[in-house]
């Protein structure tokens, strides 16, 4: 156990440079994965390999299982068949492995899920202090750094309830970044926002992508997919129907369902 904590401390210092060297490394590997809710077969035969540094957008009609898929990747949902390997750790019922994966995988939710009883700064420093054991002053410095990145350092001492939706979502992104994750999962990050706030959140996500963060993003923002993604995955009825680079995906969809979906949303 003690060697593990020193291991993660080491990585903290090197992980910015590491992103570029390990371009071809596999970040997430999903093999033959199935998931049921009771008797309902939500995810069927999912095979997906995510390379480090990839930006993947997952699209699909509602109820197609896309949110469930990325929630499986940090075990907010458990799968029943197949394998999910994140950063070389296979997700099983073992709590220690789950903790290990969650420490390295950040997640941003549709409804932000900021902790309403803590200030913005406390929201950002909670996990670094209690999970990573980082001294408060250092955690706060990191938090301020990320708040500046998402352009709201002046809100540090307010409570989430005092912020607009767009600001809250940027705080939520910053909160995940404070844990210096290797992978970021976005679960419809802009769906609950008023239209004028979508842009400010997307800007933050784009700048994150430009820095080489491995990202999986469930979203309906096709503009974002075109601009940022290097791969678009289309899901329907719990399975991956089609995946391709955004250029081909939008200009030349292959599967009937993909064509239908795109014709419905692209005008």
């Amino acid at each position: 156990m003690s060697d593990m904590s020193s291991h993660s401390a080491e990585e903290r210092t090197v992980n910015t440079s590491q992103m570029k060297v390990s371009d071809t490394e596999v970040a997430i590997d999903v093999v033959g994965m199935h998931k049921w809710y009771g008797d309902f077969h939500v995810l069927r035969d999912i095979d997906l390999k995510v390379m480090r540094g990839e930006r993947i957008v997952i699209a699909g009609p509602s109820g197609s299982g896309k949110s469930t898929l990325i929630r499986c990747m940090n075990r907010l949902e458990e799968h029943q068949q197949g394998q999910i390997i994140v950063n070389g750790v296979e997700l099983t019922a073992d709590l220690k492995r789950i903790d290990e994966v969650r420490r390295e995988v950040g997640m941003v939710f549709q409804h932000f899920n900021l902790f309403p009883h803590l200030t913005i700064l406390q929201n950002l420093t909670l996990a670094p202090i209690w999970v990573r054991g980082i001294p408060q002053a250092e955690a706060e410095a990191t938090a301020m750094h990320y708040l500046e990145r998402v352009k709201i350092p002046e809100q540090a001492n307010k409570f989430p309830g005092q912020l607009s939706g767009g600001q809250q979502q940027r705080v939520a992104i910053a909160r995940s970044l404070c844990m210096q994750p290797k992978i970021m999962l976005f679960d419809e990050p802009t769906s609950a926002l008023d239209p004028e706030m979508v842009k400010e959140v997307l800007e933050v996500m784009i700048s994150l992508a430009e820095e080489g963060m491995t990202m999986l993003c469930v979203t309906h923002e096709m503009g974002f997919a075109r601009q940022v993604a290097n791969r678009v995955i289309f899901m329907d009825q719990g399975q991956i129907i089609e995946q391709n680079d955004p250029e081909t995906f939008f200009s030349n969809p292959q599967h009937e369902r993909t064509k239908l979906f795109l014709s419905q949303i692209l005008h």
Binding site: N74, L76, L95, D99, R102, R103, V105, G106, M107, F109, H111, N113, L114, F115, L126, A127, W130, V131, A172, R175, S176, M179, L185
Partner: peptide, 22 residues
């Protein structure tokens, strides 16, 4: 809300800390 626990878990907080802090 369940989202609070999920957010805390996805930050890597463990059961005990999730309860105590969130």
């Amino acid at each position: 809300s369940k989202g609070q626990t999920e957010a805390a878990s996805s930050l890597g907080l463990r059961e005990g800390d999730r309860l105590r802090l969130v």
